[in-house]
């Protein structure tokens, strides 16, 4: 018998359920409890860079908008720095920039949206630059384990063409599922399709 590996096992995921708003965005559930809710301000007021608005729908396998979804965003600042001590340029991160936020949908329409700054390119492993992107994490009733994906920017065609994640997608026509549409300067549309035609590429990070 070999030695026993004594690793612990990761706690299993369970759906966030229909009332996720109570826990993570109680104001949206219809009551005020916390002095400050977390995650409504992704970039802070002082961070330099292009101010952008991103909105979209999460669409289920029948084509209907998912109206009870919660999406979290994690991103670098306009220089590609993450507000985390393990980023080697952490000391230079934009003032007041947290880079994380969460948003819920309009209960009637399913539309979600948030304001932030456009991230810069992020250094990757093996010297490969990652094109500017937002990391998204989606939970809802019926989603058993949070779905990770990324949103890229259509005007970054050159960087997108060499991005290590986009180029890893074998079926080239699926790469566009991770690229937003630019509807106006600073305004992006990003629909996420959970299933079926045009299914968004989801990531195992």
């Amino acid at each position: 018998m070999p030695q026993t590996l004594d690793y612990l096992k990761e706690t299993a995921s369970q759906t966030a359920g229909p009332y996720v708003h109570i826990g993570l965005a109680p104001g949206a559930a219809g009551f005020k409890l916390y002095e400050t809710e977390l995650g409504w301000d992704i970039a802070g007021a002082e961070a330099p860079g292009e101010r952008i608005h991103v909105e979209g729908l999460v669409i289920d396998g029948t084509g209907a908008p998912v109206k009870d979804v919660l999406i979290e965003v994690w991103q670098a600042d306009s220089l590609g720095i993450h507000a985390h001590p393990e980023d080697p340029r952490f000391a230079e991160v934009s003032p007041g920039f947290r880079g994380w936020g969460r948003v819920i949908t309009d209960f009637a329409t399913g539309l979600w949206g948030f304001d932030t700054v456009k991230p810069g390119p992020v250094p990757g492993r093996s010297g490969r630059v990652q094109a500017p992107h937002l990391n998204l994490w989606i939970v809802a009733r019926g989603i058993n384990i949070g779905l990770a994906t990324r949103m890229y920017f259509p005007e970054e065609a050159d960087l997108n063409a060499s991005d290590p994640v986009l180029t890893l997608i074998e079926q080239e026509q699926r790469r566009s599922t991770l690229v937003a549409t630019r509807e106006a300067p600073g305004r992006y549309r990003f629909d996420i399709r959970l299933q079926g035609d045009g299914e968004t590429v989801f990531l195992d990070v």
């Binding site: 759906t15 998912v66 994690w74 670098a76 393990e86 990391n135 058993n144 994640v165 299933q195 990531l203």
Partner: peptide, 29 residues
């Protein structure tokens, strides 16, 4: 068995990616 998952579940395989700064960092509270 959990009916809501039927129409809310991706059917394509997840894309396994190398972890970069986006994955090994996270928000600090």
């Amino acid at each position: 068995g959990y009916k809501t998952s039927v129409s809310r579940s991706p059917r394509q395989a997840l894309l396994s990616i190398e972890q970069g700064y986006s994955e090994v960092t996270g928000p600090v509270f």
